Amino acid sequence: MMTNLFSVFDPSSSIFNLSLNWMSTFLGLLLIPSMYWLMPSRYNIFWNKILTTLHKEFKTLLEPSGHNGSSFIFISLFSMILFNNFMGLFPYIFTSTSHLTLTLTLALPLWLCFMIYGWINHTQHMFAHLVPQGTPAILMPFMVCIETISNIIRPGTLAVRLTANMIAGHLLMTLLGNTGPSMSSILIMLLLITQIALLILESAVAMIQSYVFAVLSTLYSSEVN
């Protein structure tokens, strides 16, 4: 029985007081060995096309000034978040991306690395970013404050956006699912159709949110070069 609506997201599986819920984060690794087969399957070809498309897009966003191979960091980030988002849609699998513990762990070190690298190697460029081009002199102090605050909250917005989107859909599906036992058979059919539609929507959200996280990280890194 749920004591609280958000208790569906509580880590609960444990053996010898060791939490096993976070093991779901590594379930995607089970799909990787198929990549090393001699004859690529249709799944491999499809996944390689996705990665190639992402690589081209991230290279465009990073511009020529970006370091070689840096797009692979963001492709790996996209793959990891996508796997975890999808795993959370299966019954009895812990949704690790619905916790700030994971999302902040991804966003904060990335942002810190960009900031440290930018301020050490491109100090003037970073100062120039604090005042947008064409800003009147009287508004410059305010713009510096606004730009500084917007820069500082970036890791928080990255993490909260992903977490909130994962929680929202799962909560809605849980709420609708809990009303099932008290419904008539006709309403249960409607509920099933609604749940299937929500599951399709959540699959789309899982893809979109992983893409948004990776693209925004790429844009933040391109700003410091």
Rank of each mutant, 00 (worst) to 15 (best):
M1V: 07
T3F: 10
T3W: 09
F6W: 10
V8W: 08
D10P: 03
D10N: 14
P11A: 04
S13L: 08
S13H: 13
S14L: 01
S19R: 15
S19I: 00
L20R: 09
S24F: 00
F26P: 02
L27E: 02
L27V: 02
G28R: 05
G28S: 09
L29K: 10
S34M: 09
M35R: 12
L38C: 04
L38A: 13
M39C: 06
P40I: 02
P40S: 02
S41I: 04
Y43M: 08
Y43A: 10
N44W: 02
N44A: 05
W47M: 07
K49G: 03
K49T: 01
L51W: 05
T53S: 15
L54Q: 03
L54Y: 04
E57N: 14
E57L: 14
K59R: 14
T60D: 11
S65D: 09
F74L: 11
I75F: 12
M80G: 10
M80D: 04
L82H: 01
L82W: 07
N85T: 00
M87A: 13
G88L: 02
L89S: 07
L89N: 12
L89K: 09
P91W: 07
S98I: 01
T101R: 06
T103F: 10
L106H: 09
L106Q: 08
L108A: 13
P109C: 03
P109E: 02
W111V: 00
C113I: 03
M115E: 12
Y117E: 08
N121R: 13
N121I: 04
Q124H: 10
Q124K: 15
H125W: 01
M126K: 14
L130E: 00
V131M: 05
P132M: 09
P132W: 08
P132D: 07
Q133K: 07
Q133I: 01
G134E: 03
A137T: 01
L139V: 00
M140V: 10
M140N: 06
M143L: 13
M143Y: 01
V144H: 07
V144T: 06
C145V: 05
I146V: 15
I149D: 15
I149V: 15
S150Y: 06
I152K: 09
I152M: 05
I152G: 12
I152W: 04
P155L: 05
L158G: 08
A159R: 02
V160S: 08
R161C: 05
T163I: 06
N165Y: 13
M166K: 11
I167M: 15
L171F: 06
L172I: 07
L175G: 03
L176V: 03
G177M: 12
G177V: 11
G180I: 13
S182N: 11
L192F: 11
Q195W: 04
L198D: 06
L198V: 03
I200V: 14
I200G: 05
E202T: 00
A204G: 08
M207P: 00
I208N: 08
Q209I: 01
S210H: 05
Y211G: 02
S217I: 01
Y220F: 05
S222M: 06
V224E: 13
N225S: 09
N225I: 00
